[in-house]
Amino acid sequence: MLPGFGLSFGFTLAWLTLIVLIPLATIFLKAAGLGWSEFLAVGFSPRAMAAYRLSFGTAAMAGLVNAVFGLLVAWVLVRYDFPGKQVVSALVDLPFALPTAVAGIALTALYTPEGWIGQFLEPLGIKVAFTWIGISIALVFIGLPFVVRSVEPVLADLGREVEEAAATLGATRWQTFRHVIFPAIGPALLTGFALAFARGVGEYGSVIFISGNMPGRTEIAPLLIVTQLEQYAYAGATAIAVVMMLASFAVLLLINLIQAASRRRMGA
């Protein structure tokens, strides 16, 4: 038995309480001041519900896109050699480094009907900027590194032996991927998706430019909080914040439970 459990666990819990739990508790405290009926009225008003639907829906959509393409990018970076690989690898971190508002402005500029991409979509009748599609694109931008950086190390660590074993048993390359590789990197992919999703739900800076902010249609939940603040409705802002936080927390907890279960099962 290693020493240090008391110290490390105690310190973890104390710091967690001080930095995360107490601050978050103030939100709940403030929201509790509203009273139940008013909390429901503000937190679940039609406008708020539309905002949640938009925020969670677009974040899930972007998370899925990132899960597919993030896996592809991680695969290509780990498995293949091609000129400029280092540059591509560095490019993946760009959304971490670029101020989100800058990203938002850049994406908006790209997708407005006069933009570099928007001008080609406009004649086809596809509107991106100021619609949910635009919001999803911004969230894809923000979330990509989470998926790539979660999957990459696991993919790199995956032993070649299991793939060879599958091949000797007659599996095609696709069957090997589907039945052997994918389940092995599944937990990491799920983590990446969860992080991208959680980040997407709360994202503000990069979204509000491209979203158009029409109440009930393209108004994201974080913006609703800001709007409430601007109307001095602080308790209302905290009510919406509480609903968002609980939902995010539930998603994260679910995913961590799945991971813990799969780790136990594999006896690691």
Partner: peptide, 25 residues
């Protein structure tokens, strides 16, 4: 799993919300 989730929580808290928290405090 609960502890790990709590540690992850700031990832998922909107920057708008965390700003609000510190003002509330």
């Amino acid at each position: 799993a609960l502890l790990i989730t709590l540690i992850d929580l700031p990832f998922s808290v909107s920057p708008v919300v965390s700003g609000l928290i510190f003002v509330l405090l």
